[in-house]
Design a protein around this nucleic acid. Structure first.
Lengths: 227, 227
DNA sequence: GGTGTGCGTCAGGGTTGTGTCAAGGACGGG
DNA sequence: CCCGTCCTTGACACAACCCTGACGCACACC
């Protein structure tokens, strides 16, 4: 769940924000002043900070600097002041966005979503899904199979077949399902394809291809991958 | 140098932006419509996009979606419309910020700096910007390739291709992904480009280009960079 | 014991994909 | 305006891959 830190000294604004955010399944902390804000930020590690610049104890820009000293958490500034200088100062101090009061709740929430979204880990960083057996390992992300200290070369069709089986480890996959996932929806009866390619997978991956241990045939039904 | 793509159909606004940006040492491209914008974005890979929503040929939100299909480049939206719905739609489509016209140049520039700043690579998790193999080294930060004690000259396209492969060291990168990341989202089937440029990379970096050791072909699937 | 069905194995040939080369065109700098 | 660099495009040889048919085997059933 996304955690938001709301920093504002006006109770009615804080309350409105908290209610709206909680209704949208955000987890919300609230701080009425800068000192509490910095403390809460350190303790709770929010995913985004909504910060009113007009605080009783310290300048809002100081709060931004205090946060930026150790975190890149998105900071969305609220302020009653429209002056350009104020905005520039806050943004250059490290704020991510600047909304002037009075603000529309819809817009604020949209800006908040945008701030949270772009802080998300980069899409490229897929966690490596690696499946290990006693005889070989399959890295689904890198599309790599490792065996006896070396990489095993698989053709596209072999890969596709292996992928479907491994994603259903331990489960029986019907011949029809395999055919349709690998060769396309218009296939379903060409079981000879399966026989050929299962044989190739076994030859490349099984210790004793004629007595398969991982790629098990369920006669009349389908195949099953066992670790 | 930071590269900015300005998308606006009003010449006076474009001109004002271009002048102000160039004075601050930004490199600027300009597009008068959505189609040109998408094309330029693919060709030039800007560090930030300033986008007017009121374009002659297509809806600005469509431009946002077109960009978000393949890149996370910061998008700063300009618009004459103050309506909350417009803002929410643009932000949720993937825009990073929304500025209503008329806008103050100081504020716009500050928001632009903020957008560029937060897009910078994370200071904390410094990955290896230098990748070393037995035969050559690649410095991703300095955009340099070193081999046998001297720098290797790469063309922009060669470098881009190398960069994508190196950032996915060990992982298979599909031909489609390579084409889209290097040549732009509208490419995906022009595998002959890949063949030509892979050959050039191998000629410049492999000890034995006809028996590549680092730039491995996975027939029918893609290419893989191995250290 | 014969017969049918499903599965595993093998090798050839057509199809698709890849490496390589060279020519033409776009672009920018001198 | 010319020249060099870079990108695009087409042609061709070669390699890899996929499909196909034939055969053997195991098992179940008649």
């Amino acid at each position: 769940m996304t955690r938001v830190l709301v920093v504002d000294d006006e109770p009615q604004i804080t309350r409105a924000l908290v209610i709206n955010l909680k209704a949208r399944k955000y987890e919300v902390d609230a701080a009425p002043d800068g000192a509490t804000a910095l403390q809460l930020a350190a303790a709770r590690h929010p995913d985004v900070v909504v910060l009113d610049l007009g605080l009783p104890d310290m300048d809002g820009v100081e709060v931004i600097r205090g946060l930026r000293g150790w975190t890149r958490v998105p900071i969305l500034v609220l302020s009653a002041r429209h002056s350009s200088d104020e905005k520039v100062e806050a943004l250059d101090a490290g704020a991510d966005d600047y909304v002037t009061k009075p603000f529309g709740m819809d817009e604020l929430l949209a800006r908040l979503r945008a701030a949270v979204r772009r802080a998300e880990p980069t899409g490229g960083g897929e966690d490596d899904v690696i499946v290990t057996t006693e005889d070989f390992t399959v890295d689904l992300a890198a599309k790599k199979v490792h065996r006896d200290g070396r990489d095993v070369r698989l053709t596209p069709t072999e890969w596709h077949l292996l992928e479907v089986l491994v994603r259903n480890t331990g489960r029986l996959v019907s011949q029809k399902q395999l055919l349709q996932e690998v060769w396309g929806p218009s296939y379903g009866t060409e079981t000879n394809y399966l026989r050929v390619y299962m044989a190739q997978l076994r030859r490349k991956l099984e210790v004793d291809p004629s007595h398969p241990r991982h790629f098990v045939t369920e006669p009349g039904m389908g195949y099953r991958f066992e670790r």
